[in-house]
Amino acid sequence: MIEVKNIRKSFGDNEILKDISITFKRGEINLVIGASGSGKSVLTKCIVGLHEVDSGTIFYDGREFTSMNFKDRKDIRSEIGMLFQGGALFDSLTVEENVRFPLEMYTKQSKEEMLDRVNFCLKRVNLENVNHLYPAEISGGMQKRVGIARAIALNPKYLFCDEPNSGLDPKTGIVIDNLIYDLTKEFDITTICVTHDMNSVMETGENIVFLHQGQKWWEGDKKSILKTDDDVLCDFVYSSRIMKKFKNL
């Protein structure tokens, strides 16, 4: 479980996050949704420590992250897996080397043990016979899956996904969403997904937080989001004509 309490973050005079408090539950897909510029990505980067918060606290299963030194944060980060919007695979390494990288950095496994783990992770994301290909030689969907395989290589307790299906066709996007859902349940991970894709929301959203202009505007699940009367949230959810028609049915 990750608890965020009263965090604020500004860049210069521009306040991006305004007193946000959220609890992200373990074993569930926690979706952070909102329009572009609402502060979703900044929130995620603050939670993982890529940005320092101006005030407020963040707890990883009761451990206060915000006041930790670099060494203690490193221990927490070894429990975090992250899937980036563009995959963020290392260009100069093959698929196998990318997935093996965190294992080499943090474990003392033998080469055979590492290879077994790499193959397990790749098989788990439905990828086989791509070990020796470079990221540039595989499709965007495959890159995302390699990114997931790398993120789960160290059996993370916490999984962060930044717009996991952006740039993918709807069908592949759903495959990625379902994969993240399955992994969350299988390994009992606290998963936080940042998205603005309503397909993802309807497919996997268990605990949904809607951000608007840097504030937590709404919280609920995928059933309640469709019944909401909140104008701002309705504008976001029913932004397309087809969704507006759907609402009026």
Binding site: L50, K74, I76, A88, F90, M105
Partner: peptide
């Protein structure tokens, strides 16, 4: 620079490296 803008450096930092 290209590692920075494609978030590869962020990926290293997330791994605690």
């Amino acid at each position: 620079g290209s590692m920075r803008i494609t978030e590869q450096i962020d990926a290293l930092e997330i791994m605690g490296i």
